[in-house]
C-alpha cells in the first residue's frame, strides 16, 4: 500500500511540476483572494486583523477546490481511470498517494499565504509551534476529504459545480477548527493558546477519520465512479 502511495504521490507531484498549474494559477489565485479581502476591509484595519484567521482559511478552502479538481481531472482524461483500475495498484495506496499530492500542494500554499497575511494584513505570526501543526493537520484533513469527494464526483456530469456543493459543508469543521487555532496563535481573539491546542486536536481527529474512511472506501469509489 505505501509503495503504491509513494508511486501515485510522485506521479501527481510530477504532473504539478511539469504543468506548473499550481505555481502559475492556484498560488496567484489564492494571493489575489487575499488582496481582494484586503481591499474590501482595508478602511477598517482592525476588522481586517481580527478577520485574518477566517480569511486565511477561506482562501485555503477555495484553493483546495482547485487542487482537488485538478488532481481528479488528470484521472478522468483519456482513459487514465481505466488504466488505474487495470494497474493492479492498491486502491488504498492510490487514495493515500493522491491525498499526499494534494496535501503537499496545500501545505506549500499555506506557507505562501502565511507570508501573504503577514505582509498584507500585518498579522504577527507568533506561536509557530501551534500554527505549523495546524497547517499540516488541516492540509491532511482537507486533502483526505477532498480526495474522497473528488473520486465520488469524478465520473459525474457537472462535477466542477457539484464538488464545492458536497465538499465545502463537509470541511466546515476544518474551517472552524483551523480558524480558532489560528486566532489563539495570532492572539487577536479571546482564545488562549491552550484552547488553540484543543482545536488542533479536533483537526487531527477530522484528518484521521477521513484518512481511515478513504482507505476503506476508495476502492468502491474507484469502481463506481
Amino acid at each position: 500500500m505505501f509503495r503504491d502511495a509513494a508511486l501515485v504521490a510522485g506521479k501527481d507531484l510530477r504532473i504539478e511540476l511539469r504543468s506548473r498549474v499550481g505555481l502559475n494559477q492556484v498560488a496567484p489565485f489564492a494571493l489575489l483572494v487575499l488582496v481582494l479581502f484586503a481591499f474590501a476591509l482595508d478602511p477598517d484595519r482592525g476588522v481586517l486583523r481580527r478577520a485574518t484567521p477566517g480569511l486565511f482559511w477561506i482562501t485555503v478552502m477555495l484553493a483546495t477546490l482547485l487542487a482537488v479538481q485538478r488532481s481528479f481531472a488528470a484521472e478522468s482524461a483519456d482513459g487514465t481511470r481505466d488504466q488505474l483500475r487495470l494497474s493492479g495498484l492498491d486502491p488504498a495506496g492510490i487514495f493515500l498517494g493522491k491525498l499526499v499530492g494534494i496535501a503537499a500542494e496545500l501545505l506549500a500554499l499555506e506557507v505562501l499565504l502565511l507570508g501573504g497575511v503577514a505582509i498584507l494584513y500585518s498579522a504577527h505570526l507568533r506561536e509557530l509551534q501551534l500554527l505549523l501543526p495546524t497547517c499540516l493537520a488541516a492540509a491532511v484533513g482537507l486533502g483526505a476529504a477532498g480526495t474522497l469527494y473528488g473520486a465520488l464526483v469524478a465520473g459525474v456530469r457537472g462535477r466542477e459545480t457539484l464538488l464545492p456543493l458536497l465538499l465545502l459543508p463537509i470541511v466546515a469543521p476544518v474551517l472552524i477548527g483551523a480558524t480558532s487555532a489560528f486566532e489563539a496563535a495570532l492572539g487577536g481573539a479571546d482564545l488562549t493558546v491552550a484552547q488553540g491546542w484543543r482545536w488542533l486536536a479536533l483537526l487531527i481527529v477530522f484528518a484521521l477519520v477521513y484518512v481511515g474512511a478513504g482507505i476503506l472506501a476508495f476502492g468502491s469509489l474507484l469502481e463506481e465512479s
Binding site: R14, R18, A74, D78, G79, T80, D82, Q83, L86
Partner: peptide, 22 residues
C-alpha cells in the same frame, strides 16, 4: 485478472502533462 491483462482501447490512458518516459 486486471493485473495480468493489458488493454489498448480508443483512449490511450496517458497523462498529458507527463512526458513519454514519465
Amino acid at each position: 485478472v486486471r493485473r495480468r491483462v493489458g488493454l489498448l482501447g480508443h483512449a490511450t490512458g496517458l497523462y498529458d502533462d507527463l512526458t513519454v518516459a514519465d
